[in-house]
Amino acid sequence: MAAIEKYNQAFVEVFGVKESALNDHFSKDNMKEWDSVHQLNIVAFLEEAFDIMLEPEDIMNMTSYEEGKTILARYNIEF
């Protein structure tokens, strides 16, 4: 599975949305469901999908679909 497919799958699973809903505006600020539990679930999905351990700062900053891609790039994951 391509990296972007795995990445999108995490958001689809955690937020129960369609892949088409994922865009630059999909963020903590725009999603009332995006609480700490959802954020941690996203982190859990991504860590397992990409077999990585995120740094504390990156877990804290995982607050949007777009930012998540920037964070994962630091772990050598290319989209």
């Binding site: 700490s36 954020q39 941690l40 982190v43 351990m53 995120l54 740094e55 504390p56 700062e57 877990i59 804290m60």
Partner: peptide, 15 residues
């Protein structure tokens, strides 16, 4: 501060 504690606890100790 729940989010700070969570992000620390699920990263540094297992590492």
């Amino acid at each position: 501060n729940g989010m700070d504690v969570f992000s620390f606890a699920i990263s540094r100790p297992p590492q």
